[in-house]
Design a protein around this nucleic acid. Sequence first.
DNA 1: GCATCGGATTTTTTT
DNA 2: AATCCGATGC
Length: 729
Amino acid sequence: MTAGADLLAGLNPAQRSAVTAPLGPVLVLAGPGSGKTRVLTHRIAYLIEALGAAPEHILAVTFTNKAARAMASRLEALLPAAAGAARPNLGTFHAWSARLLRRESAYLEVSRDFVIFDEDDQSTLVRQAIKDLGYDPKQVPPAKIQAIISQAKNEMVAPEAIASGSHVQTIARQVYARYQAALRNNNALDFDDLLTQAARLLREHPDVRERTRARHRHLLVDEFQDTNSVQYELLRWLASDTADLFVVGDADQSIYRWRGADYRNVRRFSQDYPQAQVILLEQNYRSTQTVLDIAMAVIDRAPGRQPKRLFTDRGQGSRVTVYEAYDESDEARFAVDTIAELAAGNHARPGDCAVMYRTNAQSRSLEEAFLRAGLPYRLVGAQRFYGRREVKDVIAYLRLAHNPDDQVSLLRVLNTPSRGLGAKSTASVLEAAAGGGQSPGRLLLLLGSGQATLPTGLSGKAGAALLEFGRNLQRWRTLSQNGTVAGLIEAVLADVKYRAFLEDGTEEGVERWANVLELCNLAAEYTDLDLAAFLESVALVSDQDTLSDAQDVPTLLTLHAAKGLEFPVVFIVGLEEGLLSHQRSLDEKDALDEERRLFYVGITRAMDRLFLVRAFRRRIGGASLISEPSRFLADLPADCIHGDLPYGRTQAQSVYLRQTRWETPVASFPPLQAQFAVGQRVAHSTFGEGVVLETRLEQDDEIVTVSFAKVGVKRLSAAVAQLEILEDE
DNA sequence: GCATCGGATTTTTTT
DNA sequence: AATCCGATGC
C-alpha cells in the first residue's frame, strides 16, 4: 500500500512528523502561515488511510463554521469519500455540544427542543432579571452583569459561588440565579450553557461519558490557543485513556482573552500530558521575509513566550511602508489611492487588498474615501445578517412556533407588527399565565384552540387581537410540525402582514424586506432541514461565516476578523496610542500584551506588501485630538521600513510623497518562482479537479489557466485561489 | 401606541 | 458625532 506516501508528498519535515505522529497527545505549535490547516487535514487523512481509523470516530473541532467547512472541502479533495461512506465529524465546539445535549437531553433541565439564546436574548433576560429584583438598570449596567455571568459560566462557577467582594458582584449573583431560572422557563440555553452543560454531563454521568468517548476516539482541535476553561475541560473529559488528542495552536495569535480564551491552555496541555509530542512549525509559506522580520520584532517583545524563528523561502520582498497621515480622512485617502495605484499598475488586484483596523468605528472614514473615489469595497462584520431587527423578528416567530415556552421570542413578536397589544395587555397575559401555572405561549395556544378563555380585564379590542394571535400561533405550530420551514415562514409573513409593516416607503424599508426575502431563500435551500435544525444552524452561524469572497474588491475588516485570513496587500491603519493599543487596555499588562499580539496577527496576514498607517490627529467622539504614535511602531527594525518620515507632515507634502512612492519598491520586488507546471493535475476547493493548461508569472503573482472537469477552463491567480497539486499515481 | 426629546454611551465579538 | 435607549407627552 502506498496510501501513506501520497499523503506525505509536499509536506516539509516538521509537517510530516506532525501528520505521522503516533496516536496519543500531540501539540503542534504552528506559526502564522505555516500550513496548520494542511497539517490538520492531512492528519485526518493519515488516521484513516494509514492507521485504519474509522472516519466516524474522528472529531475535529474548530471555532467557526467557516473553518470547519474549509477543512471539510480540503479533506474531500485529499480523500474523496465513496458515496454513503462515513465522514469525519467536523464542527464548532458549540455545534458539537448542542448535538450532544439533544442526544442526552434526558439529563438536562430543558427539553430536547430547547432553543439557543444569543447575546441579544441574553441581555433581554438579564435586563428583565435586574428589573424583577428591584434594581435600576441605569445604576446596575446590564452589560457588566452579563459579562460577569458569562465569565462565571466559563469558569464553571455556580451563582452561589460568585465572590461577593463588591456591590456589583452581590447583585450579579442574584441576577445570575434568576437569569438561569428564566432560561429554564424559556426552555432555552445560552451559548455558554451549551459548553458548560456538555462538560457537566461528561463529568457527572459516567454512562454519557463512555458513550461519547466511544463515538470520538480521535480528537483534533484547531486554534487551540483560543479555548477557554470549559472547552479545555470538555476536551479532557472527552479524551479517553489513550488520549488521541491532536491540538494545533499558536499562543502568539491569542486575541480572545476578553472572551474567556486562555492561551495558557497550551502550557496546561504540556503539563497534563507530559508524554505529548511537541512539534514546532516555523516555516512560513505566506509572507516575505521582510514581513516576517517585522512580525518577529513586534512579538519578540511579548514576555513569557516560546520563541519561534519564522522563516520563508519566498525571498526578502519589498520594505514595509510606514505612513503618517494628517488625519483619519488623509489616512483613508492614502489607503484608497495606494490601492488604486497598485491596481492601475497591475501590481495587485483590488481583491488582493485589505484594510485592517482596531475598532469598527474606524471603518467609517475608510468607507467615505472609497465612496468618494467611486470604488467598491467589502465590509466585514459591521452588522451581522442574523442580528438585523427584521430577521430576528421572523426568527422569533419561528422559535415561538417551535418552542411555545420561549417567552423572549413571544414578547418580541406579540406586538410586532403592532396589533394593539401594549404593556398593559402583555402584563395581563403574563399574569394569567403565571396564575394558571404555565407559560404565556401555552396559554395563547389554548386560547387559540378555544380551550381557554381570555384573561380578565382585557377589553374587546385587545382581546380580539389576542385571540387572533392565539389562533395563528396554533396554526403555525401545526405547520412547524408538518410542513417545511419555508412554508412556515411564508404563512407567518402573510398572517401578520409583515411586508406592509416593513415597507414604510423609505429605502430602509425596502432593504429590510429584501433581508427577509433572503432569509426565505435560505430556508428554501435547506429543504433537508427540519425547523429544529434550521433554528440551530441559524443560532450558531456568525457574520464571519457569511463572508463571501467572490468579488474582486478590497476588504475592510477589524484585526480580529482578519485572523485566519491572508492578503497579498495589507494596510493596518490607526497605529496610535489609545487605538492600537486601545485605551481600555492601557492599564492592564495582560491586555496590553494582547494588543501586541493583535498587531502581530495583522502583520502576519500580509503576503507581499504591508502598509502601516497612523494619523497625526484623529477625531474621536466629538473632538479632534493630536495623537501619539503607537508604541509598537518604535519596535520596528529600521532596515525593514520604507519611508521614515517626521510626524505631522502637511497634507500637501503627503500628496507629493504618494506620487513618488512606487518607483523603488516595485522594482526591487524579487521575481516569483512558478509553482505549477503545464499538464499538472490540481484541485480547487469549489471548482474540483482539473489540469493546468498554461501558467505564467505576472508581477508578483502566478496566473494559472486550468481546465476543470466540472466547470471548464478558468484563469486563476495562484495567490488567491488555493490550488492543491495532485500527485500522479 | 407612537413620536419626540434628552441623556448616556462609545473595543475587540469565534458561538 | 452619532446612535441607541428610555422617559415623557399627545
